[in-house]
Every structure is written in structure tokens, then in C-alpha cells.
Amino acid sequence: MARVDPAVAAARTAVRAALFGLGPDDLVLVACSGGADSLALATAVAFEARRVGRSVRSRGHAVRAGAVIVDHGLQAGSADVAARAAAQCRALGLDPVLVRRPDWPGAPAPAGPEAAAREVRYRTFEEAVAETGARRVLLGHTLDDQAEQVLLGLARGAGARSLAGMPRERGIFARPFLGLRRAQTEAVCAASGLDFWTDPTNLLPDAGPAEQFTPLRSQVRGRVLPVLEATLGPGVAEALARTADQARDDADLLDSLAADLLARAGAAAQDGPVGEPGERALDVGVLAAAHPALRRRALRLAALAAGCRPTDTTTRHVDALDAFVVSWSGQGPAGLPGGARARRACGRLFLRAAPTGTSDGWTGVRPPTTTQE
């Protein structure tokens, strides 16, 4: 038997776990950009899709495997990159292979072009799922991406949820390669004869076109992590990824407890004064009796449920909400992201929904289980 390249074996093992539980003829889509990570994922999925559930006691069964490729149209030659990625996916046997060039929103996202591209990309993935009936979408994020995510969260002074990085699973999305290094995905492509594309925005300014925009993440990748590895020794990326796993467990528990606190505060407020149309009331006494960390987490969740964007809801906004609960001195209404507002009256904290909320001021948001990806 021919020896399997170690990187190829690691990629297949990771994908095997991600496909577990899919039934015969279920469809899984690989989100493919043409880069090393997603092409390595595509070839591993093409191999493992034929043998889901295989073991010494079972022959396993096949699932269908396809790909969805998003051409953002933001760089010269992007259509060629998408076409080349699609051709390689088809050559691997993936079917269907969808190439989509979505429309962009009329105005850039407040968090910047990276956030806007991310939102467009995930919306396109969800549309592809609705079109094809796919059960799962696999994303090619690696351990290196996770380490970069944690460092960016630290630099922002974010809380445990941001430090939790990207989850291995979120709804229909899964990330099999969070335990693999970027060098391993490049090795998979080399061993499989795949020609991967390097996004110029992943290069530092002195390595790409002079006018090329360089995202902060790319600068962390090219400058910060190498310095940390050189100073602290090897294994920094792995340690950061472990930190994400530990922080995620803690954040999931705290978010669940915060959601319960929010529900109790909302139920207790039902017997009090009725707010204005579009407002949701929370009992201040219930909130004030909770531990500060839990109360503040619940207040942030309340803001998100009222339609505030997670990336725009900062500590300053949570401080303002918390002051209504524990530092009440008759202050007037506080503005929240997206046009939402908060005020206190009659022992109740009232939140008015942002325009993105529902008519009754509540979006039905549950505890967030991921940061922005």
C-alpha cells in the first residue's frame, strides 16, 4: 500500500470527523476560495465523502460533496481565480460546484471592508444551502487563523467571547481544520497536485502591490506571530488556539446563565408599567441582584436582542446600560448602536429596538456562540 503523505492523512482525519452523522446522499458543500486551505479541504472532502462512517465493522456510505465559490469582484482577475478554483473542484469530483458573484450592499459595513466581505460571503453560503438543500458547509479556517483571531481579540481588549475565537461548529457551518497548521494545508495541495492561489491581501505591503490594502489580520500573521514565536519559542499559535478552546467553554456557560438572567428580568417586568410601543422592559431589581459579570453580560445580550450589531456594541454601551441599573441618578435615555435606545422608568429598564429589530423590539437573539469570523 502506498504511503499517504502525513499532511494528507491529517486533513482526511479532520474531515472524517466533520462528516460524521451525515446520511446517505446528504449534501455537504466546501466553501472554496482557491487558496491552499480551502483546496486542501476540498480534496480531503472528495476522498472522505465516499466512506462516511466506515470502520472495521461498517463499510460506511457515501454522501454527496459539492463546493460554493464566492467571487467578491474586489480584485482584478477575481473571476479567473474563481473559475480556476471551480475547475479544480470539479476535477476532484465535487458536484455541484456553484460560483456566485453576489451584489454588494449600498454602503460599506461600519466595521470596514473585511466585515462587509464576510457578511456577503456568509449570506451567499446560506443562499447556496437554501438552493441545494445542503446539510453542512465546511470552512477552511486553520489553527493559524484561530491564533490570529485570539490576538486580535486581545488587542481590542475584548472579553472571553471574543477570545473564544471561531467555533468548530455553528449551525450549518463547520471548521474541520482548526487543529491543522497553514503549512499542512499547503503540503496537502503539493501532495495532491493542486495549484492554490495566494490572496494578495494576505501579503505584507512590501510583498504585494504598492496600492494593495493590507488587512490587520494579515499584519498579525506576517509580523506579530513571527515575533512572538522568535521571542517566546515555538508553540505560540498552538497555545493561543488552546486558549480559544478554554475561553469558549467558559463563555458558553456564562452566556447561557446570562440568557436565563435576562429571561427572569423580562418576566419580572411583566407585572410593571407598560413601556412605549417597540420597547422591551427588564426588571432593574432582578438585574441589580446578579453578579456584575453576569449582569453586564445579560445587558449586552439585551442590546444584541434589540438589534445592535455585535461588532458595534462596545464596553461603553454596556457601561451606560449598567449605570441605569446600579448608578441610577435620573439620567436621560442612552443611545445604542443602530438607532436602539435605552431608558429607565418606574424600576424598569426599557430598550427600544434598532430599525433592524422586530416590530415589538425583540429579535429573538439567543446567547452568541461565536465571534465575527
Rank of each mutant, 00 (worst) to 15 (best):
R3K: 12
A11Y: 00
A14W: 05
G21V: 00
S33C: 14
S38G: 13
L39Y: 06
L41V: 11
T43W: 13
A44P: 11
V45Y: 14
A46K: 12
R51N: 05
S55H: 12
V56I: 13
A62D: 13
R64Y: 05
V68D: 07
L74S: 08
Q75A: 11
V81P: 01
A86F: 12
V99Q: 11
D103M: 12
P105N: 05
E119F: 00
F125T: 07
T132M: 14
R136D: 03
H141G: 06
H141W: 02
D144L: 01
L151S: 06
L152P: 05
M166T: 14
R170P: 00
G171H: 02
F177P: 03
G179R: 08
R181S: 02
T185G: 10
F196G: 03
P200M: 04
L203R: 11
P205T: 01
D206P: 09
A207N: 12
P215C: 09
R217G: 04
E229H: 12
T231W: 07
G233V: 01
E238K: 11
A241T: 03
S256V: 09
L257C: 09
A269R: 01
G272N: 02
V274W: 00
G285H: 08
P292A: 00
R297I: 02
L301I: 06
L301Q: 14
L304H: 12
G307Y: 06
R309W: 00
P310S: 13
T311M: 13
R316G: 15
H317S: 02
H317T: 01
A320K: 07
L321T: 01
S327F: 09
Q331W: 00
G338K: 03
R344G: 02
A345S: 15
T356K: 13
D360H: 12
T369M: 12
T370L: 07
